[in-house]
Amino acid sequence: MTVLPKDIPGDSLKVTVGTANGKPGDTVTVPVTFADVAKMKNVGTCNFYLGYDASLLEVVSVDAGPIVKNAAVNFSSSASNGTISFLFLDNTITDELITADGVFANIKFKLKSVTAKTTTPVTFKDGGAFGDGTMSKIASVTKTNGSVTIDP
Results as ranks from 00 to 15, higher is better:
Thr45Glu: 00
Lys125Trp: 07
Gly82Thr: 15
Lys14His: 14
Val59Ser: 09
Thr99Val: 07
Ala54Asn: 12
Val141Thr: 07
Leu111Arg: 03
Phe104Gln: 04
Val30Cys: 07
Pro5Gln: 05
Ala116Lys: 08
Val141Asp: 03
Gly131Pro: 01
Asp63Ile: 13
Ala72Arg: 14
Lys6Arg: 08
Asn81Val: 15
Phe86Asn: 05
Thr45Arg: 00
Val114Cys: 06
Ser61Ile: 12
Pro24Asn: 13
Asn81Trp: 15
Leu111Met: 06
Phe130Ser: 02
Ala105Phe: 14
Met135Gln: 03
Asn21Lys: 11
Phe124Ala: 02
Lys110Tyr: 02
Thr144His: 05
Thr92Pro: 06
Gly18Trp: 12
Gly131Tyr: 00
Lys137Glu: 03
Asn70Ala: 08
Ala54His: 11
Asn91Lys: 06
Lys14Glu: 14
Phe48Met: 07
Gly22Trp: 08
Pro66Gly: 14
Asp26Trp: 09
Lys14Val: 09
Thr19Asn: 13
Thr83Trp: 15
Val37Asp: 11
Met40Glu: 08
Phe124Asn: 10
Cys46Ser: 03
Lys39Cys: 13
Ser55Arg: 09
Gly128Phe: 02
Ser55Pro: 08
Leu87Tyr: 01
Ile98Asp: 02
Asp90Val: 05
Thr118Ala: 07
Asp11Cys: 09
Gly44Ile: 13
Pro24Tyr: 12
Asp151Thr: 15
Asp126Arg: 15
Lys143Asn: 03
Thr27Glu: 11
Ser113Lys: 06
Gly44Cys: 06
Lys110Arg: 06
Leu4Glu: 11
Asn42Glu: 15
Gly65Glu: 09
Thr27Asn: 11
Val73Arg: 03
Asp26Phe: 09
Val3Gly: 12
Asp53Phe: 10
Asn145Cys: 03
Ser61Asp: 08
Thr45Met: 04
Asp63Gln: 10
Phe86Pro: 01
Phe104Tyr: 14
Ala71Gln: 09
Asp36Thr: 08
Lys108Thr: 08
Val60Tyr: 13
Gly65Lys: 08
Lys23Arg: 10
Ser61Gly: 14
Ile67Gly: 08
Val73His: 03
Gly65Arg: 12
Pro121Arg: 12
Thr29Phe: 10
Phe34Val: 06
Thr29Ala: 13
Asp63Val: 09
Ile150Trp: 07
Leu97Asn: 03
Lys14Arg: 11
Leu87Lys: 02
Ser113Met: 05
Leu97Trp: 15
Asp11Ser: 13
Lys143Gln: 02
Val32Cys: 09
Ala71Tyr: 14
Leu56Phe: 09
Phe124Tyr: 02
Asn74Gly: 02
Ser136Ile: 04
Asp151Lys: 14
Ser80Leu: 14
Ala64Gln: 07
Ile138Asp: 00
Leu89Glu: 00
Ser147Gln: 05
Thr83Cys: 07
Ser136Gly: 06
Val3Lys: 08
Phe88Asp: 01
Asp11Ala: 10
Ala100Gln: 05
Val68Ala: 09
Ala38Lys: 11
Asn21Leu: 11
Phe88Asn: 00
Lys112Pro: 03
Gly128Pro: 01
Val37Glu: 04
Asp132Gln: 04
Leu111Ala: 04
Val3Glu: 14
Asp7Gln: 12
Ser85Leu: 00
Gly82Glu: 15
Gly65Pro: 08
Glu58Phe: 09
Ser85Gly: 01
Glu58Leu: 10
Thr119Arg: 11
Thr33Met: 12
Ser113Trp: 06
Phe88Thr: 00
Thr92Cys: 01
Gly44His: 02
Ile138Lys: 01
Phe104Thr: 03
Gly127Glu: 02
Lys137Asp: 00
Pro24Glu: 13
Val114Lys: 14
Ser61Lys: 13
Asp126Glu: 14
Leu97Met: 06
Ile8Val: 12
Thr94Lys: 05
Phe124Ile: 02
Lys69Asn: 12
Val68Ser: 10
Val3Ser: 10
Leu111Gly: 02
Thr120Cys: 03
Lys69Gln: 10
Met1Ile: 11
Asp36Gln: 11
Ser113Gly: 08
Gly25Gln: 13
Lys69Pro: 08
Thr118Ile: 05
Gly102Gln: 04
Ala54Tyr: 08
Lys110Asp: 00
Val141Arg: 03
Gly133Lys: 07
Phe48Asp: 04
Asn145Glu: 05
Ile138Tyr: 01
Val122Gln: 05
Val43Lys: 02
Gly25Phe: 13
Tyr49Ile: 01
Ala54Val: 12
Glu58Val: 13
Gly22Ile: 08
Gly51Arg: 13
Gly133Ala: 03
Glu58Ala: 10
Thr144Asp: 02
Ala35Tyr: 07
Leu50Tyr: 06
Ile150Gly: 15
Asn145Gly: 10
Thr149Ile: 14
Ile8Phe: 13
Val148Lys: 00
Asp36Gly: 13
